[in-house]
């Protein structure tokens, strides 16, 4: 049976993001993939908890798709996390609603990949910077996968966008149709790197 994928997309200025335009356009048109544009749905930050929880329950793989802003996510995704991942539902003694689901982050950064290390401009690796998300997932009984990251979008050409768009499509198709064994990915910093081994 195919996996149901929920893409929670958060970008406050989507219309001006070239890379995300291409990425979103490459999302396969499948009944198993739900694209949920948070800034379009909740322009006034009034996230509807009940509706969001129902959506989560309908899917097996959750994707937080957003640009990296100040080493974190855009505020509406944080608002979503605050409101939807409720105590007693997502976490806590009785909070087991999300148990067994996978969580993947799709991240875009303007800066290059080599900046993200202890000697680089950003001083920390992506994995280190995303620890809060990783930990949130853990608390909510979600299995956190290494992130799919598109680095260096500020200096990227259109061909680069499209290349990444195609890769995103392949990844989503893989996630939809194949069974993921999380342990396989444990040694990888990036989902990108693991997926390369799958492409052969």
């Amino acid at each position: 049976m195919p996996n149901k994928i929920l893409i929670l997309f958060a970008h406050p200025l989507f219309e001006k993001s070239n890379v995300n335009d291409v990425l979103v356009n490459h999302i396969p048109d499948s009944p198993n993939i739900t694209f949920h544009d948070l800034y379009q749905e909740y322009p006034e930050f009034d996230v509807d908890m009940q509706r969001e929880q129902e959506l989560l329950l309908l899917h097996d793989i959750i994707i937080w798709h957003h640009p990296m802003y100040w080493y974190s996510c855009p505020p509406l995704l944080k608002q979503w996390i605050d409101i939807v991942l409720e105590h007693g539902w997502a976490y806590g003694k009785e909070g087991t609603a999300l148990k067994g689901k996978l969580l993947l982050q799709t991240i875009t950064t303007g800066g290059r990949k080599e900046n993200y290390c202890s000697t680089g401009r950003d001083r920390f690796t992506i994995q280190q910077l995303l620890e809060p998300f990783n930990q949130t997932a853990k608390v909510c009984n979600l299995t956190y996968l290494p992130p799919f990251v598109v680095h260096g979008t500020h200096s990227m050409t259109t061909e680069g966008y499209i290349e990444n768009g195609k890769l995103y499509r392949q990844i989503l198709e893989y996630l939809e149709n194949k069974t993921i064994t999380p342990e396989d990915l444990s040694g990888y910093q990036y989902f990108n790197d693991w997926f390369k081994t799958k492409l052969g």
Partner: peptide
């Protein structure tokens, strides 16, 4: 109360 965002009563109780 349709949601309990940022409330900690439950948490404290638990």
């Amino acid at each position: 109360a349709n949601d309990h965002a940022w409330e900690s009563e439950d948490l404290r109780k638990e």
